[in-house]
């Protein structure tokens, strides 16, 4: 299983699409590592600079319909090669969400009110995420503040993460 703990990147907008996560002009790369410098390159968002804000991050918190648009698995790959293995959002596009679990990564959906609270309490401050996958708990820490939020993933998604991804799961069964 991958490591789901570390510093959090807050992306304060709904409908962040896969072209913004990794532009199509980099889809000619065959190696996942080659995507690393281009993560979120086309995302134009106030208080976000891809050149300085991604380094060292392990998790993303965002809003509704994260990962909409293209089916490109290059989006989760571009996150992964930058060390980001978990995205927490108010909702996900179907294909992006499936791609995350298929790669053994986490796409955790939380109610909008909880996402709002996370943004107002932690965005703009150095924030550390601690994930207890077995217990289904996310704990956010920033200086002098912390909050624990329960999460659920379906039994099938949990099995994919534990197996290391869909290829491993399917190969063992079908």
């Amino acid at each position: 299983m991958k490591d789901f703990n570390g510093e959090v990147l807050f992306l304060d907008r709904s409908d962040i699409n896969t072209d913004e996560i990794i532009p199509a002009r980099y889809l000619t790369e065959i190696s996942k590592e080659a995507l690393a410098p281009h993560l979120l390159e086309d995302l134009s968002l106030e208080e976000f600079d891809a050149a300085t804000d991604i380094a060292g991050k392990r998790a993303v918190v965002s809003r509704a319909n994260f990962g909409c648009g293209s089916s490109r698995e290059h989006a989760p790959w571009a996150l992964e090669v930058n060390g980001i293995t978990v995205v927490i959002a108010a909702g996900f596009a179907r294909i992006f969400r499936q791609n995350m679990f298929n790669c053994g990564m986490l796409a955790i959906e939380l109610p909008e009110a909880e996402i709002d609270r996370l943004f107002s309490r932690f965005a703009g401050k150095p924030t550390h995420l601690e994930t207890d996958f077995d217990a289904g708990r996310l704990t956010f820490h920033s200086e002098g503040d912390s909050e624990t939020i329960p999460f659920t993933v379906s039994d099938f998604d949990r099995a994919l993460v534990q197996a290391g991804g869909w290829v491993e799961y399917a190969d063992a069964r079908y």
Binding site: S71, R72, E73, P76, R94, I95, Q98, N99, N102, C103, F156, G165, W166, V167, A170, D171, Y174
Partner: peptide
């Protein structure tokens, strides 16, 4: 349905895909 590369890979190998 459009899928990612991992779903495609399993589709090529096993002829199956998972959906909700």
């Amino acid at each position: 349905a459009g899928v990612g590369t991992t779903d495609l890979e399993v589709g090529i190998l096993k002829g199956v895909c998972a959906f909700r």
